[in-house]
Write a protein that binds this DNA or RNA. Structure first.
Lengths: 159, 159
DNA sequence: GGCGGATTGTTATGTTGTATCATCGCCGGC
DNA sequence: GCCGGCGATGATACAACATAACAATCCGCC
């Protein structure tokens, strides 16, 4: 496999980004015997159009261009499916959705969200993950879902 | 100062909890020369009625019992003030608000949210905080706001 | 007395997310 | 062949969360 950990802040071949994500999604759904239907795939492609979280109604607007019957439930059902399959994440502090760069790999939601350009980078930091687990264990808490969202300035926007 | 790190999952004198929070808020606002007006204090008291995050419209319903003119902006303005002064936190994954147990002390938002009973514990974990900073630094990211929300089962509900 | 800033009142609207029931297409059992 | 079930989608309505914009009020201060 090629290195998927690209720097989202730098110029890169984003078409390839999207293609990789879609191909990966198809493979994962196939493995799991779940259906990546045309609607779901279109929604996934829309979410992947950038490295910025996208709102559900923004997805709806895009989807409606090629799918006139699209309504809020159409979009939310697709988003729910994609989240359940680990293909996208919800960014809670923005009520928006972002393609998962680590689909198929167990990991925690950890994000760096640039306040200026909106670009949101998913990071995978085992030490941070371990610190989360340790904190929960200390409080006798059984972890089901971990959310880490760090807002601020990306290197490009700060520099 | 008495130990304010009580175990929110255990039975405790919650009236004292509220009183402490309100007294602390009054003192902090006084120090800072900002006004903890009756509306703001009422909203703070409502948020502190439990250790579960409370929605803005739930606050509105409560507030309206004693303050007929209350409307959504009334509540959101009070909540915004309380957040700005560090007296409450917003729990992003629930769109709800929780009294801050560490008001006046610089700290990161770190929460353990029980899916069953709703009780949400604020934790202050310097190691976790450091791990967040380290992860951001590694990505050349300037941190402005850190949010950690861990959802799952509290010790009581896990059995 | 009146100016200015902070707070609250008031109305309307924008944004995000769900409930509910109907319909469709497919596939396997009989 | 057909029928029953299931997963997916269509369609309407509504609930929940949040803000815009402007008016009115209060209060300290010159």
């Amino acid at each position: 496999m090629t290195d998927r950990h690209i720097d989202v802040h730098k110029a890169h071949d984003h078409e390839a980004c999207i293609d990789t994500a879609l191909a990966r999604a198809r493979a994962l759904c196939d493995d799991r015997d779940v259906q990546l239907t045309p609607i779901r795939e279109k929604v996934l492609a829309i979410v992947w159009k950038s490295h910025k979280p996208v709102g559900a109604y923004q997805v709806l607007d895009e989807l409606a261009r090629t799918h006139k019957a699209a309504r809020p439930p159409t979009v939310y059902r697709a988003l729910d499916f994609l989240i359940a399959e680990g293909l996208i994440h919800k960014i809670e502090s923005l009520n928006a959705y972002l393609g998962c760069g680590e689909a198929g790999v167990a990991h925690t939601s950890q994000f760096l969200i640039c306040r200026v350009c909106g670009t949101t980078e998913e990071i995978v930091d085992p030490k941070l993950d371990h610190a989360l687990d340790a904190a929960a264990r200390r409080a006798r808490f059984t972890v089901e879902r971990k959310m880490v969202e760090i807002a601020g300035l990306c290197g490009r926007c700060a520099g």
